[in-house]
Design a protein around this nucleic acid. Structure first.
Lengths: 206, 206
DNA sequence: TTGTTGTCGAACACGATGTATGGTTAACTT
DNA sequence: AAGTTAACCATACATCGTGTTCGACAACAA
């Protein structure tokens, strides 16, 4: 199971998907119409609606693959066996690397203004993942900020730098970016977790 | 000058503006149509288009007021005479306070998913302001991250917490939020500015 | 082969957009 | 107070994109 049933649906979905990505790169998401897509894909109108409810659903299905990838990366490294230096966002490096590989798709889908709602969607998803990680860590209960706010902070920091990195054509390596983001975040976070403890800024443990 | 010329235009713009804000609160931005607005405002169709090019322009004109407010707040405190504890985002506190006052408008305009492009717009604007502040500060030139990336980080941190705060019906005071955000940011930022110097987390100077 | 299922393409109803026009009235001007 | 301006209204209209429906046909699985 899991394999395709009908070669036709495979073909059609692929045609639509490619046409969509092409057009999005060319004109930006909101400028692309369903008509454009089915013209480029050479596919009947009703066929499109047989596969996707919407232009937006098509986008989200694309975006879901990225989500699955990240969720998988998170699973790969259990919290216990993880390098302490990498523990703020276990899949942070993997995220930078994946974006680097799929640079053009990512830029088309995320860089434009008209896909801003994707950012929100993405951040919401990431916040959940990070929150789970945070909750699995031993931390001061009397911490001034609740876990979800902290997660929001961390995710936004990662996303901000990821976005900047992508907009500026990736001037650093994925590893450097992950490292920079990590340093930028952790010392501040340390203070939130254990206010009495003076963070050294090079602390390897949270 | 600066005053209104015609009472009619004042009245009409106000009617449209209010109808728009009401409807946005009720249905969310994207669900509101021009037809809805002019019905609620009891205004002719052509009248609407005589004042605004677009539904989007109407939104942006609303949003521009917030921008002007922040720019003004920044101007109020010159960088030199500012309390060192407040120097990451000079207008940070003012921003939290302003959002608190216009809570419902803010929530209607920024909290929904379909206005996500406003976030981007807003962050872009804030990044420029923060970047100016950063450049006016003495800092290590060999800093690993360029100024704009750093500004992006700071703005996203503020925005993330502002957003969280607003979504959770403001569980803390504006002052507390500003303080928390400040602490969360600075110690990490210190490390970026002067890597050799070990940040203490309570550093009062950048 | 036979029945099922994906696809085609054309047509259609619907809703929203933005423009144009000529008449009406309220607000400014003197 | 009377005259002038221009903001407003109602209506109509062309346009465009959407999402649905339907009968005919072709590819698929059994």
């Amino acid at each position: 199971m899991g394999k395709s049933k009908d070669r036709r649906v495979e073909r059609t979905r692929s045609l639509i998907r490619n046409a969509f990505l092409e057009l999005t790169q060319e004109k930006g998401y909101s400028a692309v119409t369903v008509q454009n897509i089915i013209d480029r894909a050479n596919v009947g109108r009703s066929t499109f609606y047989a596969h996707f409810l919407d232009k937006e659903q098509l986008l989200l299905s694309e975006f879901k693959e990225f989500q699955d990838f990240l969720r998988q990366q998170r699973g790969n490294r259990s919290i216990a066996q993880r390098d302490p230096d990498m523990c703020v966002l276990g899949f942070g490096l993997a995220m930078f690397e994946h974006v680097q590989e799929n640079y053009h798709h990512f830029k088309a889908l995320f860089t434009r203004q008209d896909t801003a709602f994707l950012h929100q969607q993405m951040q919401k998803f990431l916040v959940e993942l990070v929150q789970e990680e945070l909750m699995a860590m031993p931390r001061d209960v009397s911490s001034p900020l609740p876990t979800d706010a902290l997660a929001q902070f961390i995710v936004n920091a990662y996303w901000a730098l990821l976005f900047w990195w992508c907009e500026h054509e990736m001037p650093y390596s994925a590893k450097e970016m992950d490292r920079l983001t990590y340093v930028l975040i952790t010392s501040g976070v340390i203070n939130m977790l254990a206010p009495q403890d003076q963070g050294t800024g090079r602390g390897s443990r949270i």
